[in-house]
Write a protein that binds this DNA or RNA. Structure first.
Lengths: 127, 127, 127, 127
DNA sequence: GTGGTCTAGACCACC
DNA sequence: GTGGTCTAGACCACT
């Protein structure tokens, strides 16, 4: 499904979280679809299952997946309540980044058009 | 100047970096203005000078301050070459955040107006 | 693996960096091979682990090694992206040296043959 | 004559040495021409005269200038004996740089042509 | 057991 | 007095 980058300084579970998010956001994994089991993913990445467990637990808290005991984990459908909390946590981060870019005279127009583009891709998928 | 939060899980030098960035971005510390010496800040925060040194060194690499041996540390004037590299490193982060917000159906208009606001504050200062 | 020269005026971590670079460039340490752990090297040189850490961190920034928490440090395979940046930083240095040699009437042919020789050794290793 | 860069981490006298070398190598300062007095340069750069003194002393040792008591300092004519020693000291540095570039697969041809160019400029001046 | 962070206290080069 | 380097010894996060 994906590979780990050992050059990356973040903990492995952070990388796994990110890769999973990309798969979900990009639509490769669709709402209510089953994601690989902890054991399978641990085996295919040849790392400790605890590391996967930790990543899945975080993803569940951030509203990306939900798990059903003895059945597996599944992609959370959008517009879930939990997403609102997640969005609230994301706003300070985006503020920080934008302030930094503004300070360094990064053109606002360029930033906005970048956002338009990302939102545009999403629209396409929804068609 | 500011206080540290010992409940925060991040390393102290990360917190110091963040607080300093806010002071610089918000214009409290102006370009070429002198920032507190390593020793002074260590004393006022009652932590070890090495921790400050580490924070200052990182801030220097990210283009926020520059240090001169035996003279002190100063705020880097904007439009410095090093800022371009920093901006390059920031773009993937902003892309990731925006993708996440788009996925969660956060309204694009709200995001753009938030950006307008932050850039607006900057304009005011420049007046 | 190597010894430190306490008569040398440079900081210890600079010496360590240089020796490590020689080992890597000469091929004694091969790509993706593990280098001694921070603690082991500190013990074998009878200096403080922090000094090694500093050297390793710098070597990582210059593209010679990469570190994985809880796993160890390893030699970076060549043709990595980070090398391009490093090369860019090296060019002004080489220009300065060559200008100086040219000014002192050091024969160009001798300089070029010296370069041929160094590149030649590299070819041999690749065979 | 030139300006100091306080962003540069090297000691001031190192920068002064480098700038003076450039002036001499580029031919702006000609053999046996008088270089600015310690006092004048200290005044124009608004730094401590000791710093200039240190730079001049080093330049003399490296064969770039010679000083006559009560008369001032002058540019050393080329092909002086002292230059041979300097060249000897430069060779290990160039070897180190070239090894590093070779290791990172920097094309030999590109390096050689760069050298040709630098030597070429020197020829022009001698015409 | 590994790399990363932190403290306390020291010395050095530079200006 | 300033930033930079170093030591000794400790604790933490991660695998």
């Amino acid at each position: 499904m994906f590979q780990l980058d050992y050059m990356d300084h973040r903990p492995l579970y952070e990388q796994i979280k990110e890769k999973m998010k990309v798969l979900i956001i990009s639509g490769v994994l669709k709402p209510n679809e089953r994601v690989p089991s902890v054991r399978d993913m641990a085996q295919s990445l040849t790392i400790n299952p605890n590391t996967i467990q930790k990543a899945y637990k975080d993803l569940e808290q951030e509203g990306y997946i939900y798990s059903i005991r003895a059945k597996g984990s599944f992609v959370t459908p959008i517009n879930n309540k939990i997403h609102q909390a997640r969005i609230g946590g994301l706003m300070p981060e985006i503020d920080k980044l934008v302030s930094e870019l503004a300070y360094m005279n990064f053109p606002k127009e360029q930033l906005v058009s970048r956002i338009e583009e990302i939102y545009g891709k999403k629209e396409e998928k929804n068609d």
